[in-house]
């Protein structure tokens, strides 16, 4: 207490609470879940309204690319988890390698996404395109949801990549160490959430024909 009294006059009381930090992260993740929850709600309502047209529209999506991206994301989730295990075992090199590998996988995911989207756009399937406007209402809505939901998810992948890059730097600079790694844990939680959302997007758009 003597220390803190002196400290109070000049610098703020230093307070570290790993459980609190993780709690904050989980609460934030719930907001993400509910953000996407709103989209899933819209999806399910329109799927109920336009059952048949959703089925037809989904046929045009490439299950192959979807499956590949699923495998990529699942693997990247593994590597993030491994990097945390590595830092706990004081294996700084392995932790950094695993995060780099995660970033690489994320990059692959985005490249796939790019080719997939540009494929649709080449076919003339994009918002306001004459081809899309000629289609039935349900199909317009399907593509609207497809672009918004996978787009927003892609945005989250990009944010996750930025966050993980910071983690890489932090580990390199020893700001994340075997006894202080809650930042990495939280970044990992965020990355797993991105994976989690994809786990649901994948069947809803690519599998249910």
């Amino acid at each position: 207490m003597t220390n803190s009294h002196q400290a109070a006059a000049a610098i703020p009381h230093v307070h570290r609470d790993d459980v609190g930090a993780r709690m904050g992260m989980w609460l934030f993740l719930f907001t993400e879940v509910l953000l996407f929850g709103g989209l899933f709600l819209a999806y399910s309502v329109y799927r109920y309204d336009y059952h048949e047209q959703f089925r037809l529209a989904a046929m045009d999506l490439d299950t192959g690319i979807g499956t590949l991206n699923t495998l990529i994301l699942l693997t990247s989730s593994l590597t993030v988890a491994l990097s945390i295990a590595a830092i706990q075992k004081k294996n700084k090199f392995l932790a950094m390698a695993m995060i780099s590998f995660t970033l690489l996988l994320a990059l692959f995911f985005m490249i796939n996404k790019y080719f997939e989207w540009s494929g649709h756009i080449a076919e003339g399937l994009y918002p306001k395109s004459p081809e899309l406007l000629n289609m039935k209402n349900g199909e317009i809505i399907f593509y609207g949801l497809y672009y918004v939901m996978t787009g927003l998810h892609g945005l989250h992948v990009l944010v996750g990549m930025a966050v993980l890059s910071f983690m890489l730097v932090f580990i390199a600079k020893d700001k994340i160490t075997f006894d202080n790694y809650v930042k990495l844990e939280n970044a990992g939680l965020y990355w797993h959430l991105v994976d989690l959302i994809w786990i649901f997007l994948f069947p809803l758009f690519y599998l249910i024909h």
Binding site: D195, L196, L204
Partner: peptide
């Protein structure tokens, strides 16, 4: 049942991710 099965499997997968990875 297509939708049901697909969502069930997705739920199991997310259960694994939440419980172990997270």
């Amino acid at each position: 049942y297509t939708l049901f099965v697909a969502l069930l499997i997705a739920a199991i997968k997310s259960g694994l991710v939440i419980n172990i990875f997270m």
